[in-house]
Structures are given as C-alpha cells and as structure tokens.
Amino acid sequence: MKKFEYKTLEFQADDSKFTKSMSVESNEIETILNDLGEEGWELVNSVDYVVNGFTTKVILFFKKEK
C-alpha cells in the first residue's frame, strides 16, 4: 500500500486590507514550487480565503510518497 506525507505552504496578502496583490512575487512562487517539485512534492490543491472581495491568504497543499 502506498503511503504519503503532506505539506502546506501559506501565502499572506500584504498588510493593507485593501490590497489585491499577494506579498510574494510570482517568480518567487515559481522558484518555491520548482524547488518543492525537485524534492518530490506534488501540488494537489489550493484554497484562497477571500474577505470583502479581496484575497487575504492562499494555502497550497502538497503530497509526496513516503
């Protein structure tokens, strides 16, 4: 039987309540995702939290086989 381990990665929006951009640059996110992929992590889902029409945080869920 296959066994998996799981990891979460959370990105918070900037401190400003009215911002529409995340505090992490897209090329930085790409680098993080590529590094995790090299370690065998697979992105399986993401959830964004929206307050008053603005994204406040995004959580990415990864898994890899043990």
Results as ranks from 00 to 15, higher is better:
36 L>T: 02
65 E>V: 13
27 N>F: 04
61 F>Q: 11
25 E>F: 00
5 E>F: 03
57 K>W: 01
24 V>R: 03
28 E>Y: 00
33 L>P: 01
62 F>I: 08
40 G>I: 03
38 E>A: 15
25 E>Y: 00
29 I>F: 03
40 G>N: 05
49 Y>P: 02
56 T>C: 06
21 S>K: 12
28 E>Q: 10
6 Y>T: 07
19 T>F: 01
27 N>M: 05
1 M>C: 12
20 K>W: 09
20 K>G: 15
65 E>Y: 04
7 K>C: 06
17 K>C: 06
24 V>C: 02
51 V>N: 11
14 D>H: 11
13 A>H: 06
41 W>S: 10
9 L>I: 06
15 D>R: 14
35 D>K: 14
48 D>N: 14
42 E>C: 04
18 F>M: 14
20 K>N: 14
20 K>T: 15
8 T>D: 08
32 I>K: 12
61 F>W: 03
3 K>Y: 07
57 K>H: 10
30 E>H: 02
60 L>Q: 10
36 L>H: 02
24 V>G: 00
10 E>G: 12
56 T>Y: 02
49 Y>V: 13
64 K>A: 10
46 S>M: 12
16 S>W: 07
36 L>W: 01
26 S>C: 04
66 K>E: 11
59 I>H: 06
19 T>M: 03
4 F>A: 07
3 K>M: 12
64 K>V: 07
39 E>M: 11
58 V>P: 05
22 M>W: 00
37 G>K: 02
45 N>V: 01
55 T>W: 01
38 E>C: 08
29 I>V: 14
3 K>S: 15
58 V>I: 15
24 V>W: 00
24 V>Q: 04
15 D>G: 15
64 K>W: 03
30 E>D: 10
44 V>H: 00
6 Y>A: 10
22 M>A: 05
63 K>Q: 15
9 L>S: 06
35 D>S: 13
53 G>K: 04
61 F>Y: 15
46 S>P: 01
37 G>H: 01
54 F>T: 12
18 F>L: 14
55 T>K: 11
48 D>T: 08
62 F>A: 10
7 K>G: 06
36 L>M: 07
23 S>A: 14
52 N>M: 13
16 S>P: 05
63 K>W: 04
66 K>N: 11
44 V>G: 04
